[in-house]
Amino acid sequence: MKNALLSIEDTVALIASRAILFVSGPEHLLRSLPRGNWIGGTTSYFMTPEGGASREDRLFCTTFDDAVDARMAILPPNGLSGLIEHRFAHGFTCIVTPAFSTTLQRYAVDGPALPGLYNQPVFGWVAGVHLDRVGQDVPMVFDGATGAASADGLAALWVALPETAEVDLDIVNLFAPGDGESITFPEGGFDVTNCLIGGVPTNLAHYIVARGVDTTLPLVADYAGAMVNVSFQTVDAENGRVRFYAPVVPGTIYRLARTVADYGAAYAEGAREGSAADMLSCNCILNYRYAELEGRPTGGFVGPVTFGEFAYILLNQTLSRLSVRHALAA
């Protein structure tokens, strides 16, 4: 697996070489790419070896030189089971879907229960736009095989690996549950009115305003050892509504987050024994903004900065990373 932030000319040459690629970048560059073995999605932000950066003249390309085969497609909102049906016997799946899309909402809610989802790594991210053009530009995804572009589909790249290859998919989270009271929700979804805080029925929006809660910090739930965030999108105190970037799940115990003090150390630990620069990774635009990552390296991780991340399920304010290791053949 190789990562590089490339010019349009270099990306075209890579596609012409029949490389299998996951591409991110501005829409006008993605639209100008020729057909080939790639999928892509829009973003204007990247993690680079020199730190976070916004670029309109480059595409971030991950080349899967370990792959022995690949196929790609754009799945409609009602066709997400295809994600499982089309995968190879041994390999992994990359996905990208537009922010604010029906497909994203559908996958976020229904994806976790797709039969067989956890049998093979599913890595991906949510396509976005430049923060100055939210509401004007539309996040897009692309299927390089057909040249199709979509504002409401899920682009999938199924990658086949040799049997000697082992895939590791994990997340790096800068947050942990804080010491505050538990927060649970009687109903799930992206939009919330009421919840139980310490077991007491409470309007969440009113609670946030009254307590001056810092909504740059997410809610965090402990998923059997994995810390899973749900980030605040808007708090509408007048109408008593809170909107999140990912759905809350009934029966899950959330707490307001505390920040991991040293994000650099957290990212370095996230690479474990591997080289972060050689991994497929993405990081959240909210970390880019709130942790002020522009111009600051992220433990060697490089890749797109995104409007949401996938490691099987939809994540917020999280770095998702996938690595491939080759065991010695017997």
Binding site: A224, G225, V249, G251
Partner: peptide, 23 residues
């Protein structure tokens, strides 16, 4: 029983099933 699980996929499937069983 709440063992120290290391693999992300295992963590997520156990959590999803725990939620279903609790419901």
């Amino acid at each position: 029983l709440d063992p120290d699980i290391k693999t992300l996929a295992t963590r997520l499937i156990i959590t999803r099933l725990r939620i279903e069983v609790a419901k």
